[in-house]
Protein backbone atom coordinates (compact mmCIF):
# COMPACT_ATOMS: atom_id res chain seq x y z
CA UNK A 1 0.00 0.00 0.00
CA UNK A 2 1.06 3.57 -0.24
CA UNK A 3 3.02 4.42 2.87
CA UNK A 4 5.87 5.69 0.67
CA UNK A 5 3.52 7.78 -1.45
CA UNK A 6 2.02 9.30 1.63
CA UNK A 7 5.35 10.47 2.99
CA UNK A 8 6.18 11.95 -0.41
CA UNK A 9 2.86 13.68 -0.52
CA UNK A 10 3.16 15.09 2.99
CA UNK A 11 6.67 16.34 2.35
CA UNK A 12 5.52 18.05 -0.82
CA UNK A 13 2.71 19.66 1.13
CA UNK A 14 5.13 20.90 3.72
CA UNK A 15 7.29 22.50 1.07
CA UNK A 16 4.43 24.40 -0.48
CA UNK A 17 2.47 25.51 2.61
CA UNK A 18 3.07 28.97 4.08
CA UNK A 19 4.93 29.48 7.33
CA UNK A 20 3.08 28.98 10.61
CA UNK A 21 1.76 32.09 12.29
CA UNK A 22 -1.02 32.91 14.71
CA UNK A 23 -3.28 33.42 11.71
CA UNK A 24 -3.20 29.81 10.54
CA UNK A 25 -3.20 27.93 13.86
CA UNK A 26 -6.32 26.53 15.37
CA UNK A 27 -7.21 24.24 18.29
CA UNK A 28 -8.01 20.59 17.60
CA UNK A 29 -11.76 20.29 17.13
CA UNK A 30 -13.30 19.20 20.40
CA UNK A 31 -10.42 20.25 22.62
CA UNK A 32 -12.18 23.35 23.90
CA UNK A 33 -15.77 23.33 24.98
CA UNK A 34 -17.68 26.57 25.41
CA UNK A 35 -19.11 27.29 28.81
CA UNK A 36 -22.85 27.13 28.96
CA UNK A 37 -24.20 30.60 29.59
CA UNK A 38 -27.55 30.85 31.30
CA UNK A 39 -29.23 32.79 28.47
CA UNK A 40 -31.23 31.84 25.45
CA UNK A 41 -32.82 28.60 24.37
CA UNK A 42 -30.30 26.02 25.51
CA UNK A 43 -28.55 27.45 28.53
CA UNK A 44 -31.49 29.44 29.80
CA UNK A 45 -35.10 28.59 30.63
CA UNK A 46 -34.70 26.12 33.57
CA UNK A 47 -30.88 26.58 33.79
CA UNK A 48 -30.12 22.88 34.02
CA UNK A 49 -32.25 22.30 37.09
CA UNK A 50 -35.10 20.25 35.60
CA UNK A 51 -38.74 20.48 36.51
CA UNK A 52 -40.22 21.22 39.96
CA UNK A 53 -39.27 18.96 42.82
CA UNK A 54 -36.47 19.45 45.32
CA UNK A 55 -33.92 19.60 42.49
CA UNK A 56 -35.27 22.70 40.88
CA UNK A 57 -36.06 24.29 44.21
CA UNK A 58 -32.45 23.70 45.32
CA UNK A 59 -33.75 21.95 48.42
CA UNK A 60 -31.73 18.77 48.11
CA UNK A 61 -31.80 15.95 50.59
CA UNK A 62 -28.50 15.45 52.41
CA UNK A 63 -26.10 12.87 51.02
CA UNK A 64 -26.99 9.42 52.28
CA UNK A 65 -30.54 10.24 53.22
CA UNK A 66 -32.92 7.47 52.24
CA UNK A 67 -36.25 9.28 52.56
CA UNK A 68 -36.76 8.38 56.17
CA UNK A 69 -35.72 4.78 56.67
CA UNK A 70 -32.54 3.99 58.55
CA UNK A 71 -29.85 4.92 56.03
CA UNK A 72 -27.00 2.58 55.13
CA UNK A 73 -24.32 4.74 56.68
CA UNK A 74 -26.09 4.69 60.06
CA UNK A 75 -27.11 1.07 60.12
CA UNK A 76 -23.78 -0.32 61.23
CA UNK A 77 -22.73 0.47 64.77
CA UNK A 78 -19.10 0.71 65.82
CA UNK A 79 -17.02 -2.36 65.16
CA UNK A 80 -14.22 -2.95 67.59
CA UNK A 81 -11.81 -4.38 65.08
CA UNK A 82 -11.03 -1.08 63.40
CA UNK A 83 -10.56 0.91 66.57
CA UNK A 84 -7.60 3.23 66.30
CA UNK A 85 -6.99 2.52 62.60
CA UNK A 86 -6.33 6.18 61.98
CA UNK A 87 -3.50 6.13 64.49
CA UNK A 88 -1.69 3.27 62.82
CA UNK A 89 1.38 3.83 60.68
CA UNK A 90 1.29 2.92 56.98
CA UNK A 91 4.19 1.84 54.81
CA UNK A 92 3.35 2.01 51.07
CA UNK A 93 4.91 -1.03 49.45
CA UNK A 94 7.43 -1.47 46.69
CA UNK A 95 8.32 -4.98 45.62
CA UNK A 96 11.75 -6.42 44.97
CA UNK A 97 10.63 -6.96 41.36
CA UNK A 98 9.88 -3.26 40.93
CA UNK A 99 13.19 -2.42 42.56
CA UNK A 100 14.95 -4.75 40.14
CA UNK A 101 13.19 -3.03 37.24
CA UNK A 102 14.36 0.34 38.51
CA UNK A 103 17.91 -0.96 38.78
CA UNK A 104 17.80 -2.53 35.32
CA UNK A 105 16.57 0.64 33.70
CA UNK A 106 19.18 2.74 35.52
CA UNK A 107 16.68 4.82 37.40
CA UNK A 108 18.31 3.99 40.72
CA UNK A 109 22.08 4.13 41.10
CA UNK A 110 23.40 1.02 42.81
CA UNK A 111 26.93 2.34 43.16
CA UNK A 112 25.68 4.53 45.99
CA UNK A 113 23.61 3.60 49.04
CA UNK A 114 19.90 3.54 48.27
CA UNK A 115 17.49 5.20 50.62
CA UNK A 116 13.93 6.45 50.31
CA UNK A 117 15.10 9.70 48.69
CA UNK A 118 16.73 7.82 45.78
CA UNK A 119 13.69 5.63 45.28
CA UNK A 120 11.47 8.71 45.11
CA UNK A 121 13.97 10.41 42.79
CA UNK A 122 13.39 7.68 40.22
CA UNK A 123 9.94 9.16 39.80
CA UNK A 124 8.13 5.84 39.96
CA UNK A 125 7.38 5.66 43.68
CA UNK A 126 5.30 8.12 45.64
CA UNK A 127 4.37 8.36 49.26
CA UNK A 128 2.65 11.04 51.29
CA UNK A 129 3.92 11.64 54.83
CA UNK A 130 0.91 13.76 55.71
CA UNK A 131 -1.30 10.70 55.14
CA UNK A 132 0.38 8.72 57.92
CA UNK A 133 2.83 7.12 55.50
CA UNK A 134 5.98 6.39 57.43
CA UNK A 135 8.19 5.12 54.66
CA UNK A 136 8.98 2.27 52.29
CA UNK A 137 7.84 -1.30 52.78
CA UNK A 138 9.92 -3.66 50.69
CA UNK A 139 7.80 -6.69 49.74
CA UNK A 140 9.02 -10.10 48.70
CA UNK A 141 7.46 -10.32 45.24
CA UNK A 142 10.43 -11.03 42.99
CA UNK A 143 12.66 -12.30 45.76
CA UNK A 144 13.66 -15.32 43.68
CA UNK A 145 14.78 -13.32 40.63
CA UNK A 146 16.42 -10.47 42.54
CA UNK A 147 20.08 -10.20 41.56
CA UNK A 148 21.70 -6.94 42.56
CA UNK A 149 24.24 -6.08 45.21
CA UNK A 150 22.92 -3.00 46.95
CA UNK A 151 23.13 -1.11 50.20
CA UNK A 152 19.51 -0.25 50.85
CA UNK A 153 17.72 1.44 53.72
CA UNK A 154 13.98 0.95 54.06
CA UNK A 155 11.45 1.38 56.83
CA UNK A 156 9.91 -2.10 56.85
CA UNK A 157 11.07 -5.41 55.46
CA UNK A 158 10.23 -9.05 56.00
CA UNK A 159 12.60 -11.93 56.51
CA UNK A 160 12.42 -13.19 52.92
CA UNK A 161 13.35 -9.77 51.61
CA UNK A 162 16.31 -9.51 53.96
CA UNK A 163 17.44 -12.97 52.89
CA UNK A 164 17.06 -12.16 49.18
CA UNK A 165 19.17 -9.03 49.47
CA UNK A 166 21.87 -10.57 51.61
CA UNK A 167 22.07 -13.59 49.33
CA UNK A 168 23.27 -11.31 46.55
CA UNK A 169 25.91 -9.82 48.79
CA UNK A 170 24.00 -6.68 49.68
CA UNK A 171 23.19 -4.91 52.92
CA UNK A 172 19.74 -3.97 54.16
CA UNK A 173 18.86 -1.77 57.12
CA UNK A 174 15.52 -0.69 58.52
CA UNK A 175 15.43 2.85 59.88
CA UNK A 176 12.79 5.10 61.34
CA UNK A 177 12.07 8.61 60.05
CA UNK A 178 9.58 10.93 61.68
CA UNK A 179 7.07 12.63 59.35
CA UNK A 180 8.98 15.91 59.19
CA UNK A 181 12.16 14.14 58.08
CA UNK A 182 10.16 12.22 55.50
CA UNK A 183 8.84 15.44 54.02
CA UNK A 184 12.43 16.60 53.68
CA UNK A 185 13.50 13.36 52.01
CA UNK A 186 10.54 13.35 49.66
CA UNK A 187 11.57 16.64 48.09
CA UNK A 188 15.05 17.68 49.21
CA UNK A 189 15.34 20.42 46.58
CA UNK A 190 12.23 22.14 47.92
CA UNK A 191 13.58 21.94 51.45
CA UNK A 192 16.93 23.48 50.55
CA UNK A 193 15.16 26.28 48.76
CA UNK A 194 13.42 27.28 51.97
CA UNK A 195 16.81 28.13 53.40
CA UNK A 196 16.46 26.30 56.70
CA UNK A 197 19.14 24.39 58.56
CA UNK A 198 18.93 20.60 58.27
CA UNK A 199 17.09 19.37 61.38
CA UNK A 200 17.72 16.25 63.44
CA UNK A 201 15.84 13.02 62.94
CA UNK A 202 13.67 12.01 65.88
CA UNK A 203 13.82 8.70 67.75
CA UNK A 204 11.13 6.07 67.10
CA UNK A 205 7.99 5.92 69.23
CA UNK A 206 7.72 3.22 71.94
CA UNK A 207 5.60 0.84 69.86
CA UNK A 208 8.16 0.88 67.04
CA UNK A 209 11.29 0.69 69.17
CA UNK A 210 11.21 -3.10 69.37
CA UNK A 211 11.25 -3.42 65.59
CA UNK A 212 14.08 -0.97 65.06
CA UNK A 213 16.26 -2.39 67.82
CA UNK A 214 15.85 -6.02 66.74
CA UNK A 215 18.67 -7.70 64.84
CA UNK A 216 16.26 -9.99 62.96
CA UNK A 217 14.76 -6.99 61.21
CA UNK A 218 18.19 -5.33 60.75
CA UNK A 219 17.08 -2.33 62.78
CA UNK A 220 19.36 0.68 62.68
CA UNK A 221 19.58 0.73 66.48
CA UNK A 222 20.42 -2.96 66.81
CA UNK A 223 23.68 -4.49 67.93
CA UNK A 224 25.97 -5.09 64.90
CA UNK A 225 27.26 -8.35 66.34
CA UNK A 226 23.78 -9.73 66.67
CA UNK A 227 23.10 -8.65 63.11
CA UNK A 228 26.06 -10.63 61.79
CA UNK A 229 24.86 -13.63 63.79
CA UNK A 230 21.46 -13.28 62.26
CA UNK A 231 22.95 -13.06 58.77
CA UNK A 232 24.41 -16.50 59.36
CA UNK A 233 21.13 -17.81 60.69
CA UNK A 234 19.25 -16.59 57.62
CA UNK A 235 21.85 -18.07 55.29
CA UNK A 236 21.36 -21.41 56.96
CA UNK A 237 17.61 -21.10 56.96
CA UNK A 238 17.22 -20.22 53.29
CA UNK A 239 20.13 -22.31 52.11
CA UNK A 240 22.62 -19.98 50.48
CA UNK A 241 26.30 -19.34 50.98
CA UNK A 242 26.76 -16.19 53.06
CA UNK A 243 28.89 -13.82 50.94
CA UNK A 244 31.85 -12.34 52.80
CA UNK A 245 31.46 -8.61 52.67
CA UNK A 246 35.01 -7.69 53.67
CA UNK A 247 36.43 -9.07 50.44
CA UNK A 248 34.10 -6.97 48.37
CA UNK A 249 35.49 -4.07 46.39
CA UNK A 250 32.56 -1.90 47.36
CA UNK A 251 32.94 -2.69 51.04
CA UNK A 252 33.14 0.93 52.17
CA UNK A 253 30.05 1.86 50.21
CA UNK A 254 28.14 -1.14 51.49
CA UNK A 255 29.02 -0.26 55.05
CA UNK A 256 27.87 3.33 54.75
CA UNK A 257 25.16 3.95 57.29
CA UNK A 258 23.40 7.01 58.59
CA UNK A 259 23.71 8.27 62.12
CA UNK A 260 20.41 7.86 64.01
CA UNK A 261 20.03 11.67 64.02
CA UNK A 262 21.01 12.14 60.38
CA UNK A 263 18.47 12.60 57.61
CA UNK A 264 20.59 12.83 54.46
CA UNK A 265 23.65 10.82 53.58
CA UNK A 266 26.80 12.82 54.16
CA UNK A 267 25.03 15.97 55.43
CA UNK A 268 24.93 16.62 59.14
CA UNK A 269 22.10 18.33 61.00
CA UNK A 270 22.72 22.03 61.45
CA UNK A 271 24.19 22.66 58.01
CA UNK A 272 22.56 25.06 55.61
CA UNK A 273 22.88 23.99 52.00
CA UNK A 274 22.52 26.62 49.31
CA UNK A 275 21.82 25.25 45.85
CA UNK A 276 22.24 28.53 44.01
CA UNK A 277 25.70 29.31 45.37
CA UNK A 278 26.73 25.63 45.62
CA UNK A 279 27.96 26.16 49.14
CA UNK A 280 27.30 24.72 52.58
CA UNK A 281 27.15 26.88 55.70
CA UNK A 282 28.39 25.05 58.77
CA UNK A 283 27.70 26.64 62.16
CA UNK A 284 30.53 27.24 64.60
CA UNK A 285 28.51 28.49 67.53
CA UNK A 286 28.82 26.18 70.53
CA UNK A 287 25.22 26.12 71.55
CA UNK A 288 24.07 25.38 68.04
CA UNK A 289 26.61 22.63 67.66
CA UNK A 290 25.58 21.13 70.98
CA UNK A 291 21.92 21.26 70.03
CA UNK A 292 22.43 19.62 66.68
CA UNK A 293 24.78 16.99 68.00
CA UNK A 294 22.45 15.82 70.78
Amino acid sequence: MGSRQITEKSLAMLRSLPRISLANLRDNPGSRKNNKRGRGQYGGDKHGAGNKGSNQRQNYMRLGYETGNNPFYLRMPHESYYKGHHHRREYPPISLLQLQKLIDTDRVDIDKPIDIASIVKSGLYHFFPDQKHFGVNLTDEGADIFAAKINIEVQWASEQVIAAIEKNGGVITTAYYDPHSLLLLKNPKKFFETGQAIPRRMIPPPDAIEYYTSAEMRGYLADPEKISEDRLRLAQKYGYELPVLENDSNYSMLCERKDPRQIFYGLEPGWVVNLKDKCILKPKDEELLRFYAS
Binding site: E193, T194, G195, Q196, N274, L275, K276, D277
Partner: peptide
Protein backbone atom coordinates in the same frame (compact mmCIF):
# COMPACT_ATOMS: atom_id res chain seq x y z
CA UNK B 1 15.07 32.39 54.43
CA UNK B 2 13.26 31.42 51.26
CA UNK B 3 14.85 34.26 49.34
CA UNK B 4 18.26 33.20 50.59
CA UNK B 5 17.55 29.60 49.69
CA UNK B 6 16.49 30.46 46.15
CA UNK B 7 18.88 33.28 45.27
CA UNK B 8 21.91 32.76 47.50
CA UNK B 9 24.18 35.43 48.85
CA UNK B 10 23.40 37.71 45.90
Amino acid sequence: RKIYGKYGIA
